[in-house]
């Protein structure tokens, strides 16, 4: 047993972190929120060059995956930098098409190489799960919509429905032609939803890490009553609890990824709810400890806070995840 990322995995995460740190993601995110996806698409391509999207695409379609552990590490970095765009939905679409394989006619061959190279930005939604929206559907090159045992490629989208996270542009996918039908669609959609939940959990963990780091930095500088506020026990203890939440969510994420690699999704709901709760708690801590400044949209950290709120509801609500945990529990 070696239950820690190995050197190559750490190096991969470091290289992504370096790329995203230099990319000014708050500006990219604000542009994306305003409908200017150019900077986001350019960054998307550079992430693809480092192999991020190829992790979800098998070698037969010019990818290197599926590699769930590396995917989890990569999405932690995307979350750490609040990368905008349908990153989760794109890898979920890839997992769906891969699992459906020949059942899609030429769709897997049509879309997967482009997803791996970063040329294709996809969105994906399962309307039978109760979610009628596809993330960034209006700006995606392909929108896959699963409804019961059918999947179609949407023709158009309804108006953008603003999200708690301004960089998440939700829309209802409309129309389109049926791509495939049958139990294989349902099974592939369930698998894709697991991949999406894993990637969302990873994104949330990264968001939470960044929220904590920025808040620690703030309380080490902000002075009141003649001392830095980070010297107050009430402040320290809240930050300590935030760290505990994140530290205990991380191993669940890794175990969920290892499980998925072995075809076992048992740890995914626990990872999803724990990482999203920890990230949301980090957002609440960040909001509180930044004072009134934390309640402004001007503060870049608000992009992280608002995404943490949105991700709680995406790809498995807290209640859904907890119910699934008990379905799979022993005894």
């Amino acid at each position: 047993m070696w239950f820690l990322p190995d050197d190559a995995q750490r190096e991969f995460a470091r290289s992504l972190n370096a790329l995203l740190t230099a990319a000014d993601t708050p500006a990219v995110s604000r542009a994306w929120a305003a409908g200017d996806t150019g900077p986001g698409r350019r960054l998307w391509t550079r992430l693809a060059d480092l192999g991020v999207f190829a992790l979800a695409v098998p070698e037969a379609y010019e990818g290197v995956g599926p590699l769930p552990v590396e995917l989890a590490l990569a999405f932690t970095e995307l979350g750490r930098h609040a990368m905008p765009g349908p990153v989760v939905e794109t890898v979920a679409a890839a997992a769906f098409l891969d699992r459906l394989g020949d059942g899609t006619g030429t769709a897997a061959g049509d879309w997967l190489p482009g997803i791996a190279s970063g040329k294709t930005v996809a969105s994906f939604c399962v309307v039978t799960g109760g979610n009628p929206y596809a993330l960034d559907a209006a700006d995606a090159d392909a929108v896959l919509v699963v409804d019961g045992d059918t999947v179609r490629i949407a023709e158009s989208t309804g108006p953008v429905q603003p999200s708690a996270d301004p960089a998440r542009r939700l829309a209802r996918p409309l129309g389109g032609t049926v791509l495939a039908r049958g139990p294989r669609v349902t099974a592939a959609a369930a698998h894709a939803a697991d991949v999406a939940a894993l990637a969302t959990a990873a994104q949330a963990l990264g968001l939470g890490r960044a929220l904590l780091a920025h808040t620690v930095e703030h309380v080490r500088q902000r002075t009141q009553f003649g001392v830095v506020i980070g010297s107050f026990q009430a402040v320290k203890h809240r930050l300590a609890d935030t760290l505990i939440g994140l530290e205990f969510a991380e191993p669940l994420l890794y175990a969920a990824a290892l499980g998925l690699a072995a075809g076992d999704a048992a740890d995914i709901p626990a990872a999803k709810v724990s990482a999203c709760e920890a990230a949301y708690a980090a957002a609440r801590t960040a909001l509180q400890l930044h004072g009134a400044l934390g309640y402004t949209d001007e503060l870049d950290l608000s992009l992280w806070m608002r995404k943490a709120r949105a991700l709680r509801s995406a790809w498995g609500s807290p209640a859904d995840c907890r119910a699934r945990v008990l379905e799979g529990a022993r005894a």
Binding site: M1, W2, F3, L4, E247, F248, A249, P251, L252, Y254, A255, D267, A270, V273, S274, P318, A319, C321, R322, A323, V325, L326, A329
Partner: peptide, 24 residues
């Protein structure tokens, strides 16, 4: 039900956290 689920999740998280420390 949610509280019972959290107990299951917490035990698993603690087990995995400890495996990580054992590796370290």
């Amino acid at each position: 039900r949610d509280r019972v689920a959290d107990a299951v999740i917490g035990a698993r998280a603690y087990q995995l956290f400890t495996y990580g420390n054992a590796s370290r």
